[in-house]
Every structure is written in structure tokens, then in C-alpha cells.
Simulated assay, not measured.
Amino acid sequence: MTTLPTGLRERKKARTRAAIREHAMRLFDEQGYAATTVDQIAEAADISPSTFFRYFPTKEDVVLADDYDPLVIEAVRAQPADLPPIEAIRSALRDVFRKVSPQEWERERARQRVYLAVPELRARAMQQYADSVDLVAGVVAERAGLPPDDFGARVLAGAVIGAALAALPDGIASMLDPMDLKRLDRALELLGDGLPLGPGRG
């Protein structure tokens, strides 16, 4: 991952989580998402099914869980206090994703290819958009010294997620390469500028 856990226990847990996901993606590719069971994934990763469920509540979560979300939120939290919210989010995204290696990008593409190909995963992901609003609203409100449910922070967070949905071909779960990051950054720049319209604005 972009940021490595520091303790031995945390590193071991991170390796186990990565192994589960790696074997799951391989099996999904070889035999299809629907035909792959949790037991098969656990066997391939050399763990018990109960261990699998300690890392991922369901098979769907192997695909839908986005390991970058907490990194982005922490990066937003670490931005200078006087930076406006949209600029803080743009800077945090750059800080996190510029460290992603080519190998990590390929693993992320594999995860997203499964997500985009399975209708039930795409349907469940709609709830994740609402969860993303909660995450962004929480950190925006925190930086401004406001309650977590502040109305203005939630509206701003909704605008950020909406900008991402509009900028990327298949929504925020389809960020497959650095070019998509540039599109997202441009969308947030437009949002921060008050969404001016006209030639050369997009």
C-alpha cells in the first residue's frame, strides 16, 4: 500500500489482507465472480474462512472495499489549516496517489474491472457513494471546527462526490489510471472556482 503499517502485528495483518485480495482477484479472473466462493478464496490464501471474515465481512467487500479512502481522509486532515476545503481535498489526492506504484495501479485496475463487470456490485456501490459523502463531510467539518453533521459540510461533500461522478466515465469507482486522476483534479478545480462554464473550462 501507499503507507505501510509500522508495527509487526499491523504489517502481518496488511500482508494477510493483501493476500486474500490477490487470490480472490485471481480466482475471479479464472472462474468468474459468481462461481468463486469464500471457501475457495480462503483455501487459496491458506487461511480459514473465519479468518477471511475478520478481514472482509462478505465476498463483495473484497472487491468494494477501497483501501485508499482512509489514506485520502488522513491526507486531507494533514493539510494546512488555512487551505480551503476543495484545495485541501485536491492536495490530499495528489499526495496519496502520486506515491502509487505501477504494480499498485495494476492491482487497483484488477479490482475495478471486477466491480465494473458485476451488476450486483455496481448496485451495492450506490450506497458507498453515500458513505463517501459521510467521510468527506466529516473531515471537512473537523477541519473547520464544526459538528460532524454540519449541513454546509455535507453539501460541500456531496458536491465533491458529484464532481467525481461527473468527471469519471463510470463514477468514482472507475479511477483506473493517472489520467483519471487528472480529470478528477480538473473537476475539483472547477468546483472550487464556482463552476464557470464556457470553452476551455472542461
Rank of each mutant, 00 (worst) to 15 (best):
T36Y: 08
L168K: 10
E60Q: 13
L121K: 02
V155L: 15
P84D: 14
S132N: 12
R94Q: 14
G202W: 13
V63W: 04
L71K: 03
E120I: 11
I161Y: 01
T58W: 01
K59C: 07
R9E: 12
F52L: 15
T36G: 09
P196T: 11
P199H: 02
F56D: 01
G152D: 13
L176Q: 12
A137I: 03
L168W: 10
S174D: 14
D29W: 02
A159Q: 14
A81F: 08
G145Q: 07
K59Y: 00
D82T: 14
A157R: 02
A117F: 04
D177N: 15
L93T: 05
M126L: 14
S101Q: 00
D61V: 00
Q103F: 04
A24V: 03
A125Q: 10
A125G: 13
V139D: 04
V118K: 01
I73C: 00
P80K: 02
Q40D: 13
T6K: 12
E106K: 11
M175K: 05
G152A: 14
A92P: 06
A81G: 05
D185A: 07
D193I: 01
P119E: 09
T6Y: 01
A110S: 09
R26K: 09
E43V: 01
A19V: 00
Y129A: 09
R154D: 11
D180F: 06
I89E: 04
I172W: 03
A123E: 15
V114I: 15
A166F: 11
A173Q: 12
R21M: 12
D69V: 13
A153Q: 07
G145A: 07
L165D: 12
K99P: 00
E104T: 13
R77F: 04
R154T: 09
L27P: 05
I161M: 07
A78F: 04
I73S: 03
S48Q: 11
F53R: 15
D95P: 00
D134R: 15
G194R: 09
A187G: 05
G200S: 11
I161K: 02
V140L: 07
D95M: 11
R17N: 08
D95W: 10
A141F: 08
E10F: 06
V140Y: 02
S91T: 07
M179F: 06
D61T: 05
A153T: 10
P49Q: 08
L135C: 03
P5W: 13
T3W: 04
A18L: 14
D170Q: 15
L71P: 02
D131P: 01
M179A: 13
G194Y: 08
D193Q: 14
L191P: 07
D150A: 14
G162F: 10
P85F: 00
P57Q: 02
L27D: 11
D150Q: 02
V63Q: 00
D150P: 04
R21S: 12
A117Q: 11
A42Y: 10
M179K: 10
D29C: 01
D69F: 08
R183F: 01
M179I: 07
S101C: 09
A78H: 00
K13L: 10
G138F: 05
R186Y: 04
L195W: 13
R111L: 08
E60W: 00
V133L: 07
R107H: 15
L116R: 06
L64G: 02
L116P: 01
A14T: 10
T16C: 12
G158C: 11
R17D: 09
I20K: 02
D150H: 15
L197Y: 05
A163H: 12
P84A: 08
